[in-house]
């Protein structure tokens, strides 16, 4: 059976290239997030509790893993959103995607 979509743009939609890149950024962010979270939690947290130091009153492993880790993720997301992610039109008609300007400038 043939179930090829009739696609007006024969070549791959250029917006998808951007989308694929951004999905990979999402995966990399999550992996970084996990390593940071896991590393500090179990790296520092597996010492006996008497050896913990306290930052802002919180156990050091927890502060680095969950508090600082969260702040760092927020900063990373802000920076990436501002400087790396690209704005693309989302509408069906991709005919003028190469000139991303506001206003429906078609026909």
């Amino acid at each position: 059976m043939t179930r090829k979509q009739t696609n007006p743009a024969q070549a791959t939609d250029p917006r998808f290239k951007i989308a694929h890149r951004e999905a990979i950024i999402g995966i990399v962010l999550a992996i970084f997030n996990f390593i940071w979270w896991f590393g500090f939690a179990y790296g520092l947290g597996s010492r006996p509790p008497e050896e913990y130091t306290y930052i802002w009153g919180l156990p050091d492993w927890f502060f680095y893993s969950c508090v600082l880790g969260f702040i760092i993720m927020c900063i990373l997301v802000i920076v990436i959103t501002k400087f790396v992610l690209k704005e693309v039109p989302l509408d069906v008609d991709p005919s003028n995607t190469d000139q991303p300007k506001e206003g429906p400038a078609k026909q």
């Binding site: 917006r15 989308a19 999402g26 962010l29 997301v77």
Partner: peptide, 18 residues
Amino acid sequence: QVVTGYFVLLILGKKFAI
């Protein structure tokens, strides 16, 4: 759960919206 804040939108992302 912090990961959900950025992961869902980045993974489904613009391709899902388009």
